[in-house]
């Protein structure tokens, strides 16, 4: 019984993290005309944050812990 509950909690936290990452003011921080490795910072940030959320979700859901 313990595991699903903690898992559900983690997923809920991940949801909140997603809300935070994909909203003002986080977006404003990366809204600059610069590039990293030739990619605009904003695009790089959005896709990196997105990939991070997906990876964390996969880890929480598929992981054993």
């Amino acid at each position: 019984m313990d595991k699903p509950i903690t898992r559900a909690h983690r997923i809920a936290c991940l949801f909140l993290l997603g809300l935070f990452l994909f909203n003002y003011p986080m977006l404003a921080l990366f809204n600059v005309s610069q590039t990293v490795f030739g990619v605009p910072v904003m695009y790089a940030y959005l896709f990196a944050a997105w990939a991070l959320v997906i990876a964390l979700a996969a880890a929480v859901i598929e992981g054993r812990g």
């Binding site: 404003a28 809204n31 005309s33 030739g38 990619v39």
Partner: peptide, 29 residues
């Protein structure tokens, strides 16, 4: 590669604005 595309785009003033798309207006957010 993507670097090439974005560098070329940055050279065009009409495309450059798309690189930092929110333009600072709260309405955008």
């Amino acid at each position: 590669g993507p670097g090439d595309i974005f560098t070329r785009a940055a050279g065009r003033p009409d495309l450059d604005v798309l690189l930092a798309p929110f333009g600072g207006a709260a309405g955008g957010y």
